[in-house]
Structure formats: structure tokens, C-alpha cells
């Protein structure tokens, strides 16, 4: 039993050192696992941001449940001036309408939006469909299948809204990410997918429409959804920084200044260029009303498609 005593002694020691190192750092919560698309942008954002703030910060990945676990962690740290979240669109504007969460759009102090990329409605290049009109027509005999990176994700919502607002007949098949969905599209298991330019460029895909209020540079011949006779549908993959509620105005201002400076820095611009992330800065107030607007719009889509809780 001597060894059991050793074990307990060693474990106690480990516990002691653990509590000693917890210091006053800024925690940047990324609600996805390390290495994902959001994580990479967050990690490129972090160095300049901490430098501007003059603090040491740590990117912490708290993943799970469609990014809501990490987001909830930020929300519940009310009043803590040393934690912020680098958030994706879905966790702030879709998930709260889908399931019961310990937070809502009012649970945060909004700092800034960093990047945003419009989504495209796409089909495989190997298909002979070249326009949205043709897509609608061919869907009448046999409904098409559209993929998404999971239930309740932006690709899902964008397509659900399109189906509700047009004569397109299509059904949803969710995958566990854009990659597997692309594999299914390549194998013709699904025929339609909505996603960003990055995906469009990397695979053999043909854009039929863009979910934005104006045509996108570089894709001048791709019409907007509104031009096709549908109501305006605005779906973009964006990211932003939020802090918990209850922090001082001074602290919020510091965050906002640091974020603006970071997004405008050459270092971040070079990175965004490489990673095809479209810089789209919004300040605290604009970001807040933007999130509120998107939240309401998404809620309506979910309701129309019969997806709300």
C-alpha cells in the first residue's frame, strides 16, 4: 500500500501547482476545436489584439454543441473583464432560437465584427444546371437534395429560406461539416449546397446565386437572390468579438479600440487575404444592431421552415 500513498501524495502536489499558475490573463474563448476555420482567424487576430491591449492573452478552445458551449462560457462570466469570445454567426444568431441555451443575444457586450463572407448557392460543375431558373424547373419532377455542414448551420438556413421563398423543391441532408458535404456533392449524393467563396474556389463548383444585397466583386455574372425574384435573403458567414455583460464602459471601449486597430493592421490584412476572409469591420453599436437584426431574420426563417423549438 506504500505505492498508493505515493500516488495520493503526487496527486496532491499536482493539484497544488495547478492552482498556483492561474493568473490574470485575458482568455480568448474560441468555441471550436483548434485548427478549424474560426480558430485560425482567431489565432491570427490574437497577437495584434493583445499587443494593442497590452495584456498577455491565451486562446482557449471550448468546443461542442454547435459552438454554444464556449459561447455560454463567455455569457456566464458576467462582469469578468478578462474574458472575451471570438464568435461565429451561428452561435449568436441561430442557436438561441433552436434550443434552450443559458444565453441569448442580450447576454453580451458587443465589441466588433471582424470578417464576413457572403454565401453562394452552388451546384457541382459536372451537373448541366447553369441557372437558378433551370434548377427550379428540374426540381419539379424529383426534388433535389441539398447538403449542409449540420442541422441549424448557416448553409442549412440559407437553403431552407430559399426553398420556402421559391418554387424550388429540395430536401435537407445534414453532414458533419463542409468537407463531408463536399464529398457527397462530388459523388452526386446531394446536388445543391450553400457556402462561401473559399469552398466555391476549392472545389469544382458552379455558383448560381449569391445571398447578398449586391453582386460580389469577382463574381459579377452571379445574380443576387433578390434579382431572381425572391425576397432579399442575406446570408453571410461572419465572426466577431463579444465580451460578457456587466464589464465597465472603459473596458468595453479598450476592447473596441484594440479590435479596430487589429482589423486595420497590415498583419491581419495580409492574413485575411491569404485565408480569403473578407474584412468587414463593425463597431460596438453597429455590431449589436446587426446581431439583433440577423437574430430576428434567422428566427423567421426557422419558423417558416418549421425548425424552431
Amino acid at each position: 500500500m506504500t505505492s498508493l500513498r505515493y500516488l495520493l501524495a503526487a496527486l496532491a502536489l499536482i493539484g497544488a501547482t495547478q492552482s498556483a499558475v492561474a493568473a490574470d490573463n485575458l482568455d480568448i474563448i474560441v468555441p471550436f476545436a483548434a485548427g478549424g476555420a474560426t480558430d485560425i482567424v482567431a489565432r491570427s487576430f490574437e497577437p495584434t489584439f493583445s499587443q494593442q491591449l497590452g495584456v498577455t492573452s491565451v486562446v482557449r478552445n471550448v468546443a461542442g454543441a454547435s459552438a454554444t458551449v464556449g459561447t455560454a462560457e463567455v455569457a456566464k462570466s458576467e462582469g469578468n473583464p478578462n474574458i472575451i469570445g471570438y464568435e461565429p454567426a451561428g452561435a449568436l444568431t441561430i442557436q438561441p432560437s433552436l434550443k434552450k441555451l443559458p444565453y441569448g443575444p442580450d447576454s453580451f457586450t458587443y465589441i466588433c465584427r471582424t470578417v464576413s463572407n457572403p454565401m453562394f448557392l452552388m451546384v457541382s460543375k459536372s451537373s448541366d444546371i447553369t441557372s437558378f431558373k433551370q434548377l427550379v424547373k428540374e426540381s419539379q419532377d424529383q426534388p433535389f437534395l441539398y447538403g449542409s455542414s449540420g442541422p441549424g448551420t448557416l448553409p442549412h438556413l440559407a437553403m431552407a429560406a430559399t426553398v420556402v421563398n421559391s418554387d424550388l423543391k429540395a430536401e435537407h441532408i445534414p453532414y458533419s461539416g463542409s468537407g463531408p458535404a463536399m464529398n457527397a456533392l462530388a459523388g452526386n449524393e446531394i446536388q445543391i449546397m450553400a457556402d462561401t467563396e473559399t469552398i466555391l474556389e476549392n472545389y469544382d463548383l458552379r455558383p448560381l446565386a449569391v445571398f447578398a444585397d449586391h453582386r460580389v466583386e469577382g463574381y459579377d455574372d452571379v445574380p443576387t437572390i433578390e434579382e431572381l425574384g425572391l425576397p432579399e435573403l442575406d446570408f453571410a458567414v461572419w465572426q466577431g468579438v463579444v465580451a460578457p455583460k456587466g464589464i465597465s464602459d472603459e473596458r468595453a471601449q479598450q476592447y473596441a479600440d484594440a479590435c479596430k486597430a487589429t482589423v486595420e493592421s497590415d498583419k491581419f490584412k495580409t492574413f485575411a487575404d491569404k485565408a480569403k476572409a473578407g474584412i468587414a469591420y463593425l463597431g460596438p453599436d453597429d455590431f449589436k444592431s446587426f446581431v439583433q437584426k440577423r437574430f430576428e431574420a434567422n428566427k423567421q426563417v426557422l419558423k417558416d421552415a418549421g425548425l424552431t423549438r
Binding site: 476545436a33 483548434a34 485548427g35 478549424g36 476555420a37 480558430d39 485560425i40 491570427s44 461539416g177 468537407g179 463531408p180 463536399m182 464529398n183 462530388a186 473559399t198 474556389e201 476549392n202 472545389y203 469544382d204 492574413f271 491569404k274 485565408a275 480569403k276
Partner: peptide, 29 residues
């Protein structure tokens, strides 16, 4: 699948793909 199609087969290759993207290489067709 990662190099030929840009489709990562698992979490690990998804992370590798992320590292490539940082360096301006986008795996894909």
C-alpha cells in the same frame, strides 16, 4: 482526400489543412 479534393478525412487532417491555409495553400482540386 485532403490533398486531392480538399476534403479532410478526420479531425487531424482538418487541422493540417488549417495549417496549410495559414500559409496560403488551399488544398482542393
Amino acid at each position: 482526400p485532403t490533398l486531392a479534393l480538399g476534403i479532410p478525412g478526420d479531425v487531424v487532417t482538418a487541422m493540417m489543412m488549417g495549417a496549410m491555409v495559414i500559409h496560403g495553400i488551399t488544398p482542393g482540386v
